[in-house]
Design a protein around this nucleic acid. Sequence first.
DNA 1: CGGGCACTTGACGCCAGTCAAGCAACGTGG
DNA 2: CCACGTTGCTTGACTGGCGTCAAGTGCCCG
Lengths: 244, 244
Amino acid sequence: MKMISCHDCPLQDCGPFIPHSDEEKDFLGGFKAGEMAVGAGTQILMEGAKTPQLFTVLEGMGLREKTLEDGRRQVINFVLPGDFIGLQAGIMGEMNHSVEAVTPMRCCVFRREDLWLLYRNRPELAFDLTWIAAAEEYFLGETVATLGQRDGTERIAWALVKLFVRLRGLGLEAEPGTVPLPYRQQDLADALGLSLVHTNKTLSRLRAQRMVDWSDGMLRVPDLEALAELAVTEIEALPRRPFL
Amino acid sequence: MKMISCHDCPLQDCGPFIPHSDEEKDFLGGFKAGEMAVGAGTQILMEGAKTPQLFTVLEGMGLREKTLEDGRRQVINFVLPGDFIGLQAGIMGEMNHSVEAVTPMRCCVFRREDLWLLYRNRPELAFDLTWIAAAEEYFLGETVATLGQRDGTERIAWALVKLFVRLRGLGLEAEPGTVPLPYRQQDLADALGLSLVHTNKTLSRLRAQRMVDWSDGMLRVPDLEALAELAVTEIEALPRRPFL
DNA sequence: CGGGCACTTGACGCCAGTCAAGCAACGTGG
DNA sequence: CCACGTTGCTTGACTGGCGTCAAGTGCCCG
């Protein structure tokens, strides 16, 4: 497998990402320590681990998840291309969640020690890193509000709206209103704090009402507005965002 | 009211905070735009607002909260001295939650435009800012897991353990096992996604079992270990952390 | 003294969890 | 080639945690 140069990074001209200048690409090229390809089901980062690596997802999808002492699982977020993973370990020294690949994934690898270089020499990229952390916080704030306030149907509608908008933004809308969503119902249930059974029944009901159809790994949303209304959310345009 | 110099900042030698060097204090002194004192009940930041200010809490307590379109309220987190507020607006341009003072508060004020100076001239402080954002993300991850996986009793025990440890870390433990907690039951309920009634009954039950006694604005925890066990959490020592 | 606010407590009902069974698709090995 | 285990999805019956409604208390304040 050949390693992609930052100058040909598939994320550069993709969706919502703010492209880097040539100068930045040169710097990032030096910052990049390698590339990693993993199969479906691989644990990329472990909760509590002090890994020396940070990653940017180039391809594939995964999950951030956390396990309580007694084994209950919570999915924190869905990991899509462009996402940066390992920031907590990079900055604070320890992850509070694990990251697992759900499809085969390819990631850009950075070394934790090199982070300093970035803060020393590239203030605008350092700022971008903070931006990324703040964006994650932003999203988790919405998630907290969802788990705390919305009922089952609203939660599912909310999550599917968010996923649809993110995936569409990445250019993955094959035919209008349809994006790939290669997760299991169990993953969605664990993300929303619902049981598998209840999630399944709610999805069936939504399908019968023609609100969403998630089957065979494809998510079909005939009327995004209507689904968002059901979720009691606004569909906010995703902001242009930096990446590394 | 006189403005405190960063050299006499009450946070410098307090609890878990990593003190600044004299040089850093000089820089922060220039960065500091002023001080703000507000009464209980004041809105400090509004959801969706693009405020030009950032704050560090010097004294007093507050809440981060978010309101859904239909009026439901979610408390995102409890704001204590040392907390940095407005990072999202500072970095991304818009807050996703409001911040409200629950007691009278005093805050250190920074200007958003000056953030750049910090990234340009003080990489270690820029790093600290990212640290702060990552720490917030860390905590919100735990909150998501709590709202998604724990039942009512566990949630309440979890929240009270977290609050107790934070307050104790700030040196607010007046007599052993007792810290001030000047919030309403409604605030805790909204933080945990429980109804006021259920929160109240659960608190009564915990009080009867001698697990916690939260009344008259004071939180008494006779056996922190036991409470943490009930919450299915470990009491992790809070890390030494930077502040601005 | 009346009104508002925070906290309590009891009665009742529903959303969502648990238990359980069944089906389809797949891969493995005898 | 078929038995078999595994994984993911689906559906029905039953239960209980937690929400809603409602009424009442104590306290502060104008």
